[in-house]
């Protein structure tokens, strides 16, 4: 195989071929298995590297700021949109020119009497089309085990104590049904634009472990 590497290794000194320069090498059996599967699927023409790159760009282009928070801010401003969102989130998200993904989505509206929080006790199902890839803690064993058993303690750990007179409802996601929380609009935001409101809506507030931020 011809070598046209331009690196700093002196001539004659052996050097390794990194899997990807400056990034952690796959080490364990299962890490190598994942990479091997990808390479064999490409070699056999099941998909192309361009398709893989496009997929990575697509998921990495989704963030809670540009997607989920826009939906929430729009719902705060537009009662008609909010009604559609709660009735059929999949259709409403399309209406907002976003890709709802492939699974059904249900929007959970927080109210003064009910706070909603989302988990996937069996794995990591998550509204990726609105929030991107799930954070590590959402996939962790302790979040999945505990939030259904002691949601108020878990929420307090996240800095979100829930008053005794507010119910907490925990929603367990499935592969076919994802949830996103519609947090309550903070006081003091009268007259704010959609752009301004969206800055108050964090990823965690749409999972339900936080509230929307108060205006500074």
């Amino acid at each position: 195989m011809p070598h046209d590497h331009d690196d700093l290794t002196p001539p004659g000194v052996p050097h390794k071929h990194p899997f990807q320069e400056d990034h952690p090498e796959p080490q364990t059996y299962h890490q190598l298995l994942g990479v091997a599967l990808h390479e064999v699927l490409i070699e056999k023409g099941v998909y192309t590297m361009d398709e893989m790159r496009a997929r990575m760009e697509r998921i990495e282009g989704v963030s809670s700021e540009t997607h989920g928070a826009r939906i929430v801010a729009r719902a705060w401003l537009d009662d008609d949109f909010k009604a559609k969102l709660i009735d059929n989130a999949f259709a409403a998200i399309k209406l907002a020119d976003m890709d709802p993904g492939y699974a059904e989505i249900t929007v959970l509206e927080n109210t003064p009497s009910t706070h909603n929080v989302v988990v996937c006790t069996l794995c990591s199902c998550y509204p990726r089309s609105l929030l991107g890839r799930p954070p590590a803690w959402y996939k962790s064993k302790s979040y999945r085990a505990r939030v259904v058993r002691e949601p108020r303690e878990v929420l307090a750990e996240f800095g979100t104590p829930i008053p005794d007179n507010q119910d907490v409802t925990v929603h367990d996601s499935t592969a076919e049904l994802r949830y996103i929380v519609l947090p309550m609009r903070p006081a003091g935001t009268e007259g704010w634009s959609e752009d301004q409101l969206a800055t108050l809506v964090s990823r965690d507030s749409m999972i339900g472990v936080a509230r929307a931020s108060d205006p500074e």
């Binding site: 990034h23 994942g34 990479v35 998909y47 990575m56 590590a136 803690w137 505990r146 878990v154």
Partner: peptide, 20 residues
């Protein structure tokens, strides 16, 4: 134990597995 709330990044092999 408390939930480890640290954010994390993805290794390239993880992005490949996610993507495939």
């Amino acid at each position: 134990k408390p939930i480890d709330r640290d954010e994390h990044d993805f290794a390239y092999w993880e992005r490949l597995v996610d993507g495939l």
